[in-house]
Design a protein around this nucleic acid. Structure first.
Length: 431
RNA sequence: GCUGAGGUAGCCUAGUCCGGUAAGGCGCCAGCCUUGAAAGCUGGUGGCGAUUCCGCCACGGGAGUUCAAAUCUCCCCCUCAGCGCCA
């Protein structure tokens, strides 16, 4: 949620920023917010005036009663007030709710460095690392590699859970865990505290962290419960300090979330669809930071560097893009995607999303900055970035490290987590 | 799931039976005192709207009764404890 104060004091600045999204809806929304706000303030003053009169009469009636002097006149006037007040108050609260609902629909203000563009094809490459392999059709897709190893069940999973779910089996399960542990250790070495969050959230905190449309498109809801399966540990981590005052001196707070992630909407285009690249459920190690407003730009670069380091150590070539206005989404003020090179697909595909959400999430969550237990008016900034999502992390490793004999070499940094295992090979046992 | 106890400001607590301007403590800020600090003393310390004085709101949320609700009535949410069930 954008700061209402800013909307009032610098509407031109806000409008200019929203206009960069090239969606006239937002500029119109802003105008409506300002209109409702002005109406609300007028109405509030009227309501205050009636309430002041009521309180005044009320006080004088009480006084008259204790002195046993007549108060009929006062009371007859007072009796008329509740009806008047009810009407004004209901209008006032209607205006207030309308204003706030509109305000919540406004997306975050974008950082000046976000490039113009209509969709992800216009994201701007800001760096590349490694030498892309040119295997192409000579290679198997990661799904075929897994099936060849006897380490995945896609058809049977569809039968019991539907498309987009999978069974993993054998050493690849350990590889999944190894990836998580590797990323977690890397982050722990850089000041992050591991956090295992709840895998479900109530609606109210969830509304603080994500776009409203996500409730329709992304999140699974538990039937008959006010609970949603998390789409990423970013969400419970952001909500961790719901309604609290964070001590400025304790910032930045660096957290490393580890959790499964559940997503209803997963798309389904492109080559090599069978596999674990687009799935309803996967594991992820996530970086999350609460910081002072003035530090978030620097910390975004820190998170990006950490995410890059994960893929460098895995030996996976990648590029980083600065996500353009049309592809940014409503919560982030600036976002980098790290795109790993998939040699079978001959394409860079997103494996990391790294965002500075500035004060947008924190304000919606009612989190404030303070010092020594004293609440302040400032709101902290929040940032999040994938360290590794094991579905896509596994997928790129399987594609890149596959061998002609069907085995998969294990990246060296992961071997210590696998008892020194050097490769995934087909075991004698069948499913 | 059942029963009970609770939800009051940044935190802790009183007030609720019996309706009449929300009391106190901690923490924090300022001043006094001091070489400096601590202690002590004094004052201040929520949100919103006006900003000249000020006014309104705020006791988990909502509705109702009343001139007037933290307080009375109804509905709902949440937390804790005990019991039950259980990996």
């Amino acid at each position: 949620m954008i700061d209402l104060d800013l909307v009032r004091k610098e509407p031109a600045k806000v409008e200019e920023n929203l206009a960069r999204r090239k969606n006239p809806v937002y500029v119109r929304l802003l105008a409506e917010v300002r209109e409702k706000d002005a109406e609300w303030r007028t109405c509030l003053q009227q309501a205050d005036e009636v309430r002041r009169r009521r309180n005044d009469l009320s006080r004088r009636i009480a006084e008259a009663r204790t002195k046993a002097t007549p108060s009929e006149e006062l009371e007859s006037e007072a009796k008329k007030l509740p009806d008047t007040l009810r009407a004004i108050e209901s209008q006032e609260s209607e205006l207030l709710h309308a204003r706030d609902a509109l305000l919540r629909r406004l997306p975050n203000l974008m950082d000046d460095s976000v490039p113009f563009g209509t969709d992800d094809s216009q994201n701007v490459v800001v760096s590349t690392w490694g030498e892309p392999l040119h295997g192409g059709a000579a290679l198997k897709s990661h799904g075929e590699v897994l099936e060849g190893l006897g380490m995945a069940e896609f058809d049977r999973a569809r039968r019991v859970s539907g498309a987009g779910f999978y069974y993993l089996r054998g050493a690849v399960v350990l590889l999944d865990l190894a990836l998580q542990r590797f990323a977690l250790d890397l982050l722990a070495g850089r000041g992050f505290t591991p956090v295992a969050p709840p895998y479900v959230l109530r609606r109210a905190p969830y509304e603080g962290v994500t776009d409203l449309a996500d409730f329709e498109n992304v999140m699974y809801k538990l039937e008959a419960e006010d609970l949603y399966l998390i789409a990423t540990s970013e969400h419970p981590l952001a909500a961790l300090y719901l309604g609290e005052i964070l001590d400025e001196d304790a910032l930045p707070i660096r957290l490393a979330g580890v959790s499964p992630c559940f997503r209803k909407e997963i798309g389904g285009h492109g080559v090599d669809q069978k596999g674990i690249f687009r799935v309803h459920q996967f594991q992820k190690v996530e970086q999350f930071v609460f910081c002072r407003p003035e530090d978030s730009a620097t910390i975004l670069e820190e998170l990006r560097a950490n995410a890059e380091e994960v893929f460098r150590q895995l030996g996976v070539p990648y590029r980083v893009v600065n996500v353009c206005t049309g592809d940014l989404g409503s919560v982030a003020a600036k976002k980098y995607d790290v795109e790993a090179w998939f040699p079978r697909q001959q394409a860079f595909r997103e494996v990391v999303s790294c965002s500075n959400c500035t004060d947008y999430q924190a304000r919606r969550l009612g989190i404030r900055l303070g010092k020594a237990g004293r609440p302040g008016k400032l709101v902290p900034h929040t940032l999040n970035s994938t360290a590794v999502a094991t579905s896509r992390g596994l997928a790129v490793i399987l594609e890149q490290y596959q061998q002609p004999d069907g085995s998969v070499t294990i990246p060296e940094v992961l071997r210590p987590y696998l008892g020194g295992l050097r490769a995934l090979v087909r075991s004698g046992a069948s499913l």
